[in-house]
Design a binder for these strands. Structure first.
Length: 273
DNA sequence: AGCACCACCTGTGGGC
DNA sequence: TGCCCACAGGTGGTGC
């Protein structure tokens, strides 16, 4: 579900709400949601830790504590909801309750149960255990020349597969990748080695623009995404291609759906070459 | 290196 | 109406 913009929206909302909060006793409705360390150790060691600030790397939400780091990945259908008073109105799909000492709480919901949390003690452990194969954040840690240089090392990849590869750069998912390729006029099946320099530059610009717009409009709610207060995103109404099979592109051609990099892929066969 | 395929889960929507 | 199958915003493992 959530790609970089959705996680960033959640981060921006949660940071002022969570700063200074101290964790109380967690409730692990579904212990396997805790990836690291063991659910028992997680539950025993979280209480008493205080939240300093929130970061993000790609689709990972990184909650820095006074001691250690709590990391969350929402995968397909995870939702992180903040409530002022720890009452659960909806029990369905509730996987974790993380109450704070002041009576507020963070609730983790996840229909498909793919999402995971990690509690690590140091930055080195975070990198080793959680972010081992994660590349630089495509929005914050990659300038245009870095992007072009990294592209040069992956010449034989299909451009769509590469953008989805979190080890190349972190943050792009299926929706925003299709939107970026549309805006830069690039067929998702193209190989990196066949891109002209101007096309690669246009792609980089499109990525920054689309991600910024996604954040500005509160993310994309295609189905399940909710922000940290339970509200829907608004970017779905501005999508040019994703989910719009058979709709007309502004050039007059029909948006086409195909399988590229193993994923449903939407593009305009006339505008994207 | 790159890719196809499967697995992990639950729900939904389209086709028949 | 109802059943079945494909597919869904993500990622990790395997094997070619």
């Amino acid at each position: 579900m959530p790609e970089l913009p959705e996680v960033e929206v959640i981060r921006r909302e949660l940071e002022p709400l969570l700063k200074g909060k101290v964790f109380a006793e967690p409730m692990l409705q579904m212990p396997s949601t805790i990836e690291y360390p063991s659910p028992e150790l997680f539950a025993a060691s979280l209480p008493g830790r205080e939240i300093n600030n929130l970061n993000r790397r790609g689709k990972y939400l990184i909650i820095n504590l006074d001691r250690g780091i709590l990391t969350v990945h929402l995968r397909m259908t995870g939702n992180l909801l903040y409530v002022d008073d720890d009452t659960v109105s909806e029990e369905r799909f509730l996987r974790l309750s993380l109450p704070f000492t002041d009576g507020s709480a963070l609730h983790y919901f996840d229909m498909r149960r793919f999402g995971r949390l990690w509690l690590t003690e140091t930055q080195a452990e975070l990198k080793e255990v959680v972010l081992k194969r994660i590349g630089p954040d495509i929005l914050n840690d990659l300038c245009r020349d870095d992007f072009l240089e990294l592209l040069g090392k992956r010449e034989r990849s299909r451009i769509k597969a590469l953008l989805l590869d979190q080890g190349f750069a972190a943050g792009m998912g299926n929706i925003y990748t299709d939107e970026c390729l549309y805006r830069s006029g690039i067929d998702p099946k193209r190989r990196v080695q066949d891109l002209k320099k101007e096309e690669a530059e246009k792609l980089y610009q499109s990525i920054l623009e689309v991600l910024a717009e996604g954040i500005k409009y509160g993310g994309t709610t295609f189905r399940d995404y909710r922000n940290a207060r339970g509200a829907l995103g608004d970017f779905q109404s501005r999508l040019a291609v994703y989910g719009r099979k058979d709709a007309l592109c502004r050039c007059g051609a029909s948006i086409t759906k195909a399988k590229v990099a193993g994923r449903g892929t939407y593009y305009c066969p006339r505008c994207q070459k």
